[in-house]
Design a protein around this nucleic acid. Structure first.
Lengths: 202, 202, 202, 202
DNA sequence: GATTAATCGAGACGGTACGTCGCGTCTTAGT
DNA sequence: ACTAAGACGCGACGTACCGTCTCGATTAATC
């Protein structure tokens, strides 16, 4: 990502106006034209910025996209607390599907993950922090706190298991077989580890 | 896919040598150069074929790749029968991970699914038959026949649930968090629906 | 120069329409915008031709210019016969000055010679056949035939001596010191070699 | 030319160190890289100077070059007195050829004259004082003083006639046809104007 | 056997994005 | 006011692919 943390040192400082113009341009163009139709040249033109300025701070459109929309992913995947862990996980899984299929940030996420399949640099970028897993973790943590999931649960692992079915369906285009997401079933799956008593037993 | 089924009518018939040369060239180049570095011109040159001949029968490199290697996927994902359904599903999941991370056909599958995220035509191609789900179905069918999974199980749905965690981990690049695949756990998850008795009870 | 003489061989043959469009575009642009403002990109656009097509047949704008206008130079520097060699040389020197200062082809010639001062490839192009010397030779040859210049005159050498003062004045921008060109003086200079009698004696 | 004559007024005075660094950098780079490869940025970097400082005092690389090396031309084209005017002019013409083909200042002169063919500002610069004509004048003046050339000779005009053949040969790249320069012939050409007696008559 | 017509290889075509480079201007902090 | 440093908007560079086109040469089935 861009060298934001660089020491200001000497010379003309980086223009934040240019930076924001690029990020907004990418954000808009992703919606209006789609990822594949976006070009570095087009981004620069849309942002009213020189091409060199874009290349100075980012080395590919994937990198710009990552900086532009990955922060949005976090906010779109936050869900309100619900009365039970099952309901809350249901809400979260609904948010995941909505994010992947209907939001700008989700389109960006899919484009990046797609690109990562044949571009090692993008793969590294995506790997550095997966939006879905990151968003799932606090939800699971709350379920653990409520005693609905085992205290020694491997959160990272469980988070993947939670979001994987929904995410894979979207990636593979299997939207027509979309099943009703079920937080209750997910909890039930791990409940055995909680011992007799727990969400399922009740 | 190619217009294989077209009525030959009159004129010079399609050269099967050219067709095979293209498919083999794509297969080889995917391994040697990777998906992104492959070009239509390069494919034609490698195959010793005119560019027009490629465009006459396929409209994109994704389409060629699909025809070239998707049939291989089926053979690579076939697993031998094991003594229990749990073991057999374990073997299958191992095969899935190996396919996705270490085989030519798997690389092609990932490239196609990746491209599908921002290309509707490729998405349609991939959706038409997902290699992983297709391969998972007979495995699940055998488990149902053994009575280890409920008879009324929605196979397509369960197949997605089965392969999703492994597939999503690969797509997201979360290889370092790869969990030991467990067929037993998968069966256990659905066993409740089989009633008392079944794989879990034993 | 372009590979005009190439064996047609196989594949789509070179488009003569594209070739002529480029040559005409360069010709026009030289007048309208000047040499420095001409760009390969601009030439291609003006000719309605792809940039690659330009680069396929010429490697620089100097090369295109050479092919476009050097043939014109020959026609512009042809002078009618006059009654005496002195008058004829005068007419020729007038044509030289007019060519260098007031014609399209002359502007191209000056641009090429200028570029040749810091570009070896252009230098080779220019050296291959200098328009002024080439044009001067037949004029001198006629004077020799008339007996106004020695029969054993080194034509190439004398041609340079003939055009050099006029050409150098233009190159150095010394137009304000332009002297009346004099064919009679030129003949007088060499007449001694003809012996008593000859143009000067009369 | 640079604003050397400007009133210093208030504020930090112009750094002469920066000025000399730029001039030396240009001098060196002309030799090492050639005129075309020189860039304003490169000159500034080589001189250890800011780009703005260069642009503050010169408006193009041609202008810097002119200031940097045109003064050298004068010294390189000075020839020692010889016993006769013919010999002296021979020496001078040799110096001219050496200057144009083998010296730094000569390379700069050729580059400037070349650039002048399609750049009006450079043309004005070059026209302001031609190095060759300027150097030829004192040589001719001495020949007049000796009585070897007519007293009423138009020096500027004759100077051009003297250097033009050699200079044009270099500009046009006609080095292979280089004739032995001859001061005696030059004097002979003008001797008629001196009347009976003079260099030629002897 | 000649004709017909779609194929084959080769490669030039008009486009357009790539990533780099140089331009001349500007905006810093420091002298 | 000047300096070094360096980011800025701009636009040309020469290259690479795109998908289309135009050649002459094959290659069967049809006449």
């Amino acid at each position: 990502m861009s060298a934001v943390d660089k020491v200001p040192a000497i010379g003309r400082p980086r223009s934040d106006a240019a930076r924001m113009a690029v990020l907004h341009a990418v954000d808009d163009m992703l919606v209006e034209e789609g990822y594949a139709a976006m070009t570095m040249k087009g981004i620069a033109a849309r942002a009213g910025v020189g091409k060199q300025t874009v290349y100075r701070w980012w080395s590919s459109k994937a990198e710009i996209l990552f900086e532009a929309v990955m922060q949005d992913a976090a906010t779109e995947l936050v869900v309100d607390s619900a009365s039970t862990s099952g309901e809350e996980i249901d809400l979260f899984l609904d948010a995941v599907v909505r994010f992947l299929t209907a939001s700008h940030a989700g389109a960006a996420y899919r484009a990046l993950v797609g690109e990562a399949q044949h571009d090692a640099k993008v793969a590294a970028l995506v790997r550095s922090s997966d939006a879905l897993v990151t968003a799932a973790t606090p939800v699971l943590r709350r379920a653990v706190a409520r005693g609905d999931l085992p205290a020694d649960l491997d959160l990272a692992d469980a988070a993947v298991d939670l979001v994987a079915p929904a995410a894979f369906r979207v990636f593979a285009g299997l939207t027509e077989t979309r099943r009703r997401a079920s937080g209750f079933a997910f909890i039930a799956r791990y409940a055995g580890q909680v011992g007799r008593g727990g969400a399922l037993a009740n």
